[in-house]
Design a protein around this nucleic acid. Structure first.
Lengths: 153, 153
DNA sequence: TATAAACCAAGTAAATTAGTCAAGTATTAT
DNA sequence: ATAATACTTGACTAATTTACTTGGTTTATA
């Protein structure tokens, strides 16, 4: 488990999708504009998210991306794991330490790493949707058309 | 909060210190050899750990590093925060999104980030010391002299 | 058919991580 | 005192990862 800006981008983008879910697909161009991330970088991230079956692309005009499953089946851990290259990390085994203490600390780290994963796996996108502030946004979007007639490009 | 190999190095090195605490100071050279991390890189990391008052250097022959406080007062979060440069990360505020949804997702991320920190702050080095496998090592080191008469350099 | 979107791939720039080198300073054993 | 040990600091380099760029191709809608 690894935690960097890359993972943050992916998670916030997924939150965006989750929030807009009732409204329909969200385009990467919108996310790019809103979150100030380059479009092509988003494309790369979403290509990985798609490969892990977390999002589904809808092609053509009016298309975009939406969640591939219900928000309560998508955990933060899944999102981060999807975009991070798995650097299998520890316990190469070739260290050759005096007393085997080496692999003891490695083992301890693995244990910690596992706990972090489990922690993040216990938090789903739906947990965010339940926040009052988010609910407000969803309400607003359902009640009125928010697409401006002349979108700024 | 950020989680990378850098933080892992710091945490495993600190585990090492905690395990050897009863025996006395641990030299960076030993950690370098055992964990296959370059000595100078360790020096950089430990310089940061010392600045945050997590370790204490003992100079002169027979010297090394030891924990600056009891193992139950040092959390994983503290260690990782010490070696990571704080990239204050989110909510630059200059994005200028249509409906303020931007800062909503940022806010959600900040909430998550805080929860991760709290989680890691709830895990102390002492938690590792309580593991049976670690206790064995400490026992072995207390009972017999482990320093070889002719250390390999 | 024109357009708006996802999709794809190769390459580049910037940032971070990791390691190296070198010249110190402090401490202790002898 | 002196030498050995070990920490301290800074500047520099290489490798890796992150982020972005460019230039396309498909696909679906209108």
């Amino acid at each position: 488990m690894r935690l960097s800006t890359k993972g943050r981008y992916a998670v916030t983008a997924m939150m965006d999708l989750a929030i807009h879910e009732p409204k329909g697909p969200v385009t990467l161009a919108e996310i790019s504009r809103c979150q100030s991330i380059s479009l092509s970088y988003l494309e790369q991230l979403f290509s990985k998210l798609r490969r892990e079956n977390l999002v589904r692309g809808v092609r053509g005009p009016g298309g975009g991306y939406r969640l591939a499953k219900p928000a309560d089946e998508i955990s933060i851990a899944q999102i981060i794991a999807a975009v991070d290259e798995k650097v299998d990390s520890t316990c190469g085994g070739d260290a050759g330490c005096d007393e085997g203490n080496t692999c003891l600390t490695h083992e301890l780290w693995c244990g910690l790493s596992k706990r972090i994963y489990e922690f993040l796996d216990g938090i789903s996108l739906k947990d965010f949707l339940s926040r009052p502030a988010v609910q407000d946004v969803i309400q607003r979007q359902n009640s009125a058309s928010n697409r401006p007639a002349f979108p700024l490009n």
